[in-house]
């Protein structure tokens, strides 16, 4: 793989080119190209187990690609040293599926954590900043609770407040709607959109919840079997006639993604009978 330095146009915050990645024998990505535009919400969608979370970890530099390049704000994530990657990560926020709140710290301290670690601000300013971030997600009143006392939706909002604590340029959401009730789902959908627009962020949302994601995304990538199978605006995807998009959008049990896990022919297996 030749090391191409991709010259990204100015409106692209993240460019992924020729990305390949595998776990052991299993190929997760093969020659994947993805562009994330500044100021927009880009959704990465696909069935479970297609490596959507892996993609976020690759962009965040938590994993190294086998081949290809990942550029964030003009810097090659896959080539940065430890110090530089930490410097870049201060400008990236990430919302983990499990929220990843520190269980031994209160809500207030969780949101204050990045501020205390990376700034030397006096306590009064940290107090003000944390309350502002918590107010933005509607949980100013919950500041003294501990993560174990929060509902799943609240935990995710606290994690969101923590992710925006350092005023990052982008936020990556890993399955923000998974396992949420309709109300907290609505809250999160609204939060992702308003925060993106109010704070001038760039958002990457990884999800398989079609309806919610399509309602806020500006651009969608559909990934399956390690490749980008379709991409476009929500409206364009809605008009797509590809059988794959059809199956994913309408939740059909069988189609390009087969119902059956690969197996030898049914008849042959029953007749030979391994028990004999």
């Amino acid at each position: 793989m030749q090391s191409l330095r991709v010259l990204a146009p100015a409106d692209l915050l993240v460019t992924v080119r020729g990305l390949s990645f595998s776990r052991g024998e299993r190929v997760i990505f093969e020659q994947v190209d993805i562009d994330i535009r500044r100021g927009k919400i880009t959704a990465i969608m696909g069935p479970s187990g297609t490596g959507k979370t892996t993609l976020l970890n690759l962009i965040g530099g938590l994993l190294q690609p086998a081949a290809g390049s990942i550029e964030v704000d003009g810097e090659r994530v896959d080539e940065l040293g430890l110090t530089e990657i930490y410097r870049l990560r201060k400008r990236m926020g990430m919302l983990f599926q499990s929220s990843a709140l520190f269980t031994d710290l209160s809500v207030f301290e969780n949101v204050a954590f990045p501020l205390r670690e990376h700034t030397a601000l006096p306590e009064s300013i940290i107090h003000t900043l944390v309350l502002m971030k918590l107010e933005a997600v509607g949980l100013r009143g919950a500041r003294d609770l501990f993560p174990s006392e929060l509902s799943g939706g609240m935990a995710r909002r606290v994690a969101l407040a923590r992710a925006i604590a350092l005023d990052p340029m982008m936020i990556m959401y890993d399955e923000p709607f998974a396992g949420q009730d309709p109300i907290s789902m609505g809250v999160l959908v609204k939060l992702i959109r308003t925060l993106n627009d109010a704070l001038g962020l760039t958002s990457i949302v990884v999800s398989h919840d079609i309806k919610e994601t399509a309602s806020i995304a500006d651009y969608i990538y559909l990934i399956s079997n390690g490749r980008v199978v379709e991409q476009g605006t929500p409206a364009a995807l809605d008009r797509s006639t590809s059988p794959w998009v059809e199956q994913f959008v309408h939740g059909l049990p069988d189609g390009p993604v087969p119902f059956h896990y690969p197996a030898p022919p049914y008849e042959a297996e029953l007749l030979t009978g391994s028990a004999l």
Binding site: R89, Q97, P114, E117
Partner: peptide
């Protein structure tokens, strides 16, 4: 619970 990964993503 991804707390270590979360910390790394916060550049800690």
């Amino acid at each position: 619970t991804e707390q270590l990964a979360g910390m790394e993503m916060m550049a800690v």
